[in-house]
Structures are given as structure tokens and as C-alpha cells.
Write a protein that binds this DNA or RNA. Structure first.
Lengths: 218, 218
DNA sequence: GCGTAACCTTACGCACGAGTAGGTAAGCTC
DNA sequence: GAGCTTACCTACTCGTGCGTAAGGTTACGC
């Protein structure tokens, strides 16, 4: 019994969320049992129901807390009035540091919420907020250097960057001894060179139709 | 009753797999019930057990079939002896076409297998095979143009490209009216410009430590 | 020091779904 | 058309885990 008895509600709620994130992350949403979560929190099951509601609500609460923390970490790191690349760099670094330090939270956010129907929407919303932020950074950053990039290209750029970062983060979550800052550097490098070439007008175009459109194999 | 009675085993098995992929993709592994799958296949539950075994085995079978199809689609499209960018282009195009045409299969492969513990490993193996292929293409392609890129950079490039493509494909699966070929073009563009800059020696480096390493916010 | 409200428990109801037992019938082979 | 094999079904068992009812115990106001 690591916990003294009869803690105030606010404290217990956080403990429960901590436990829930841990268990959800190691078992997955369905395989996680409310009993195990209660146990992990050093409390009995009805308390969880009294405070956080049903299993779905509990998971949503986890999602919210972890998502908010992630967002705050990133937004807090991206100081305005810094040059473009510096801002992007800090955002990426904060992101990978967060994932490195909160592997459980990331597993909940990314691996679980993605698969389970009822939560996918919520997750997608957060995701698109991030993409918007990144697209905005690219936009103003490139504009500040006197370059124009088509909106579609900029969006794809942002989307691809976020997607690549998510995959990289996913990998990071499984490799405890990997260095988040190094990961961020590599990602930055990727984005930077990509953006650099784009604005230099290096556009790749598909070759003229050498083969007819063949329906994909059944 | 769309099915005439008493079909030969091989046919029924495929029907069951079709049904399973459909149901798994719309419900998720846990939420999918064997009854629903049997129902979708127009058959009764014990048949499924007789032919494909337990729920896990059934899912693994789906995973295998869809994964194999995807691999075949890609490998079949990447004709050797074509120039580097053409090969990459065809591979990407085949990939996005496949996802566009097999959204259910993709959902099973990507969203479900990823989250559920017992299958993540299998999926990761496929994934790394693809990454290897891509890295190889980048390697020989760049070497053929007389450029050298450090192995780590090339791997990150491949990893990021695959990650970005997966995210893009994920998005594609949710947007039925999006055009796979256009997606492939954008991805290609992204990769191409990135690779182009890399080999031009445009490496981005982190700024000198202006701020000490601050632990991420709890 | 006593009420009462907040905290916490044990012990259950109940539904749902994986997996199975045991049986029917259709098509083959001779 | 006897007898075997293969396809297929109805109707269960049984574990598991969500959610709750009903009751204890501690702290704190007054």
C-alpha cells in the first residue's frame, strides 16, 4: 500500500489517470480491465466509477490529459519571434522529448486511440490542429524568405512531416535507449532539406503515361 | 442467402477471409465477434472454427493474406533495370493504388494489427522489409548518380518516407474520393526533393546550445 | 462529541462472446 | 443404395469483465 488512506478527490483522480494510462498502454483498451486499473492505482474499482465514470469515459479522460500535455509541451517550446527554422526545430525537439519521456502516454494516444472506433475522431482533431500549426510555420517561414509555395504543396509537406514524425515517435517509444534530440535533428534535417528544395523550385513530375492505368491486383 | 449451399472448402475459406477482413476493419479486433463474421460470410460459426481456427488465428490469416497482396502489388510494380526515380515512383503508385482499392485490408493491417499486442510483431517485420527495399533503392539510385550518402541518413530518409506514406495512406483510406495517383505524385515529390537536397550536401545542423537541456513538463 | 458528508470496500448481477458437443444432410464411390 | 466423407447446423457451456448495490470507516464542521 504505497498510498496513505483517504486522499482528497483531486489527488486520487490523478493517481487513477496515471494508473489507467499505464495499464491501457501495456494492455490495449479492450484487454485492460477496470480491476487491473483500480489495482494499479491502489484503490478499488467502484472508486474509479465514482470519479471517472465508465471505461470509455476513463479512456477519453486519459486521452485528453495526455493530448493536452503534448500540445502544451510543443506550443510552449515554439517561442514566437524566433526565426523559422529555429521554431520548427524547437517544436520537433519538444515533441520527441515528450514522447521519449512519456512513452506510456504516447502509446495510449497513438496506438490505442487510433484503432478503437469511438476515439479515432478525437485523435484526428488533435492531429489536424498540429498539422495546421506546422503548415502555418512553413507558410510564414517560407514567405519571410521571400518564397511562395503553392498551398497544396505546403499542406502535403506539413502532412508528410507530421506523419513521418509520428512514425519516428512510434519507433522511439519502443527503443528506450534512443536519443530524442538526435531523432529531432534527423527529422529537422529531412524537413529542412525538403523545404529548401521545394522553394528552390525543384518539382518532380510524373513521367508521361508509359503504361496504361492498370487496376491493382485483386 | 446469396450463397448456394455446400461450397468446396477452398472457396468458403476465401469467403470467410473476405468477411473477416470486412468485419475486423469496421469493428476492430476485439469488438468484432465471430458470430458477426460468420454471419457476414453467410455461414455458421463452427464452420469458421473448423476451417480457420481460433479468432487470433483467423486474424493472423487475414493479416497474412492482405500483407502478401500488398507486398506483391509493390514488388510487381517495381520493375528492375528502370532508372531510380522511375522505380520509386512505380512503387509508391502501386502502394497508394492498393490502399485505395483495399481500404478494408489496409485498416486491418495498419490500424488493428498495430494496436493489438500479439500482432504488432508480425506487422513490424513486414514494415521493415519494405523499409529495407526502399533504403536499397535510395542507395543504389544515389550511388548510380555518383553521390555518396551516409548510411544513417539514407536509413532515416527511408524510414521517414515510409512513415509519411503510411500516414498518407491512412488518410487516403478515410477519403474515398481522393486520388491515389495524385497522392503518390506528392509523396514522390517530397522524397525526390528531399533526396536531391541531401545529396547536394545541404545538411541542417542544430544550433549551438542556446538553452540547457530542460526536462519536458511533467 | 456527534452528525454528516466524503471516501472506500466487499460482493454481487448480468450480458456478451469465444469456443464446442453432437447431430443432420448432401454428395460422392462402388 | 450402402457407406463414407465433407459440408454444415442448432444449441449449448463457461469464463471474463463491466458496472452497481449496499454497507463500512474516517475526517471535519459545529
Amino acid at each position: 500500500m504505497p498510498n496513505p488512506k483517504r486522499l482528497p478527490r483531486a489527488v486520487r483522480e490523478q493517481q487513477m489517470l496515471d494508473a489507467a494510462v499505464k495499464v491501457f498502454s501495456r494492455r490495449g483498451f479492450h484487454a485492460a480491465s477496470m480491476d487491473e486499473i483500480a489495482d494499479e492505482a491502489g484503490i478499488s474499482k467502484p472508486m474509479v466509477y465514482a470519479y471517472l465514470g465508465s471505461k470509455e469515459e476513463l479512456f477519453t479522460a486519459c486521452l485528453h490529459r495526455e493530448g493536452t500535455r503534448l500540445m502544451e509541451a510543443i506550443v510552449g517550446a515554439v517561442v514566437p519571434d524566433l526565426p523559422f527554422d529555429e521554431r520548427l526545430w524547437r517544436g520537433l525537439r519538444a515533441f520527441f522529448r515528450f514522447v521519449g519521456a512519456h512513452r506510456d502516454g504516447w502509446a495510449v494516444l497513438y496506438r490505442q486511440a487510433r484503432g478503437e472506433r469511438p476515439f479515432a475522431g478525437e485523435l484526428a482533431a488533435m492531429r489536424s490542429r498540429i498539422i495546421e500549426v506546422v503548415a502555418g510555420m512553413l507558410d510564414r517561414g517560407l514567405a519571410a524568405q521571400g518564397h511562395e509555395v503553392r498551398a497544396a504543396e505546403r499542406d502535403v509537406m506539413a502532412y508528410a512531416l507530421v506523419g513521418a514524425s509520428e512514425s519516428a515517435a512510434d519507433w522511439l517509444a519502443d527503443h528506450p535507449d534512443a536519443d530524442p534530440d538526435r531523432m529531432a535533428t534527423r527529422m529537422m534535417n529531412f524537413a529542412w532539406t525538403g523545404a529548401g528544395s521545394l522553394l528552390a523550385g525543384q518539382l518532380w513530375r510524373p513521367p508521361p503515361v508509359g503504361d496504361r492505368v492498370v487496376p491493382p491486383p485483386r
